[in-house]
Nucleic acid binder design. Structure first.
Length: 323
DNA sequence: AAAGAAAGCAACCGCTTTCTC
DNA sequence: GGAGAAAGCGGTTGCTTTCTT
């Protein structure tokens, strides 16, 4: 038996709101408030809408001081900073941007910001792949085997991109943002001040715990190149650096975010990139990023696979802008 | 100019969390 | 403390607009 519907679907209008409906809802709420019950509200005012729909319409469009579109660079940076630290918790992110709604930010991220990041990344990787291809071709010419290319060789030419795997894409973006966050003079900051509620603190603490539990975290603790991470995860330095026992047969959802955190840790471990530009545009500075194979450090160790710093980040020098 | 593709965005769906009794 | 209802939230869908060929 499923959950009871919140309203009578048959008698409820769907789709775009008409100006009349908007006016009715707005006028009522401005005069009486929501009355603390969205479900009952549409019936009170004679709207054939679901209560949830009314709530959404009010919160996203009708309430005062709502801004639409025209995201500033500063807002971009705030969104990215927060995404690094808390992920897709759009309501919290929206809370830091007055006049913005979670839906708006979510749409903006999914349709523009993310592509902005990935577009830069893809371009650089294509150029890099082309360079590799050329050098391999020259090598093969020398060995007179130009007509045959082993699959393994093909993988070398285009190792990790493009990918249709959503988790890989997610990890790509996260890694990229984390790199940017570590660059001196960048505009991203870990927004410590948003960790206001016990729940938020708990969330960050759990992320920190997960980080410390990975083998990769050991190298972060000892890494001399990484100086910003402790600031990004306040309290992290006080946590035990011993990797704790973490069952790897967990349901991925139960350790939500872990795969990304490994990606972050891998990246931090390998990153020595710096920039001197510090432009707020940020994206212009994004250089080549070769995403490591989708295997955590821990798993990599277990399987005897090469570590990121050995392979996937071999071209990390691309992060260093030309002098 | 027209058709198809891509992008943008409003709205919906359903799961989770919080509140109330 | 438990159950049910309501609110909150993030992912997804589908329509509209814009761009490209």
């Amino acid at each position: 038996m499923g959950r009871a519907p919140c309203c009578d679907k048959a008698n409820v209008k769907k789709g775009p709101w008409s100006p009349e409906e908007d006016a009715t809802l707005k006028a009522y709420i401005e005069q009486h408030g929501t009355g603390g019950n969205w479900i009952a509200l549409p019936q009170k005012i004679g709207l054939k809408r679901c209560g949830k729909s009314c709530r959404l319409r009010w919160l996203n469009y009708l309430r005062p001081n709502i801004k639409h579109g025209g995201f500033s660079e500063e807002e971009d940076n705030i969104i990215c900073s927060l995404y690094i630290s808390i992920g897709s918790r759009w309501s919290i992110i929206a809370g830091q941007l007055p006049g913005r709604t979670d839906n708006d930010i979510k749409n903006y991220w999914n349709t523009r910001l993310k592509k902005k990041l990935l577009g830069k990344q893809r371009k650089e990787q294509q150029a890099q792949a082309a360079r590799r291809c050329n050098s391999l071709k020259q090598e093969m010419k020398r060995e007179s085997c130009e007509t045959f290319m082993a699959p393994a060789l093909m993988n070398q030419i285009s190792p990790y991109w493009p990918t249709d795997h959503p988790l890989e894409e997610e990890a790509n973006i996260r890694s990229l943002l984390m790199k940017l966050a570590q660059q001196p003079n960048n505009n991203f900051q870990y927004p410590i001040n948003i960790i206001s509620s016990p729940q938020d603190q708990l969330y960050v603490n759990s992320m920190s715990s997960m980080l410390t539990s990975s083998a990769a975290m050991n190298s972060i603790h000892t890494s001399t190149s990484c100086t910003q991470l402790p600031n990004m995860f306040p309290g992290l330095e006080n946590l035990p650096s011993e990797p704790c026992e973490l069952g790897y047969d967990h349901n991925p959802q139960q350790i939500d975010g872990l795969e990304e955190l490994y990606g972050m840790a891998d990246m931090v471990n390998a990153s020595t990139g710096t920039t001197s530009s510090g432009e707020s545009t940020g994206w212009g500075d994004i250089s080549s990023l070769v995403y490591p194979p989708f295997v955590s450090d821990y798993e990599g160790c277990q399987q005897g696979l090469p570590q990121p710093q050995d392979s996937a980040f071999e071209d990390l020098s691309y992060f260093v802008p030309p002098q």
